[in-house]
């Protein structure tokens, strides 16, 4: 468990971050394309290089939040995945790697992720972001229910 702020406080802070970040940097928040920058790190820095810096800051925030909550500890096995699906260590690891690959492939195909499409894009009223978010939710619901049906859910 982390800090666990009430949903409306956490939501207002995440949402409020978007216009403040735009005012400071002139840019719209987006995270998944930071991974593209990493993949093209050998090329000269283009206008998107800031996304790599932003992505590098994220772990620092997680470190601070878990430290403040007193929950920072080293976890090498994803216990919550095991507990939710009743699967072994290898299956747990495979779920993370395969899930990650689908995230990367899907985000680059859809042109963004939960931050760029589902928060910023929806807030701008963009058609592409509404369609992408409907896809995120459809895939997420279908995969979760299929996984639980396959594994029998919590052991």
């Amino acid at each position: 468990m982390t800090l666990d702020w009430p949903f409306w406080i956490a939501g207002a802070c995440i949402g409020g971050f978007v216009p403040l970040f735009a005012l400071v940097s002139g840019k719209l928040l987006g995270i998944s394309s930071g991974y593209s920058e990493l993949c093209s790190i050998a090329k000269p820095a283009g206008p998107e290089r800031w996304k790599l810096w932003f992505a590098l800051g994220l772990p620092l925030g997680g470190f601070a939040a878990s430290g403040l909550a007193g929950t920072h500890r080293l976890e090498t096995v994803a216990e919550p995945v095991r507990a939710a699906l009743g699967v072994g260590d290898v299956a747990t690891l495979a779920l993370l790697v395969v899930g990650g690959a689908l995230i990367g492939y899907g985000a680059r195909t859809a042109g963004g992720c939960t931050s760029g499409h589902s928060i910023v894009g929806l807030a701008l009223g963009a058609k592409s972001s509404l369609v992408a978010t409907l896809g995120f939710m459809a895939g997420g619901f279908a995969a979760t229910w299929a996984l639980v049906a396959l594994t029998g859910g919590a052991a």
């Binding site: 779920l95 899930g99 690959a101 992720c113 369609v131 896809g135 895939g139 619901f141 979760t144």
Partner: peptide, 13 residues
């Protein structure tokens, strides 16, 4: 692409 992302979102949490 959104659906593929969503499946990955669910698998990895």
């Amino acid at each position: 692409g959104g659906i593929v992302f969503g499946i990955g979102w669910a698998l990895s949490g």
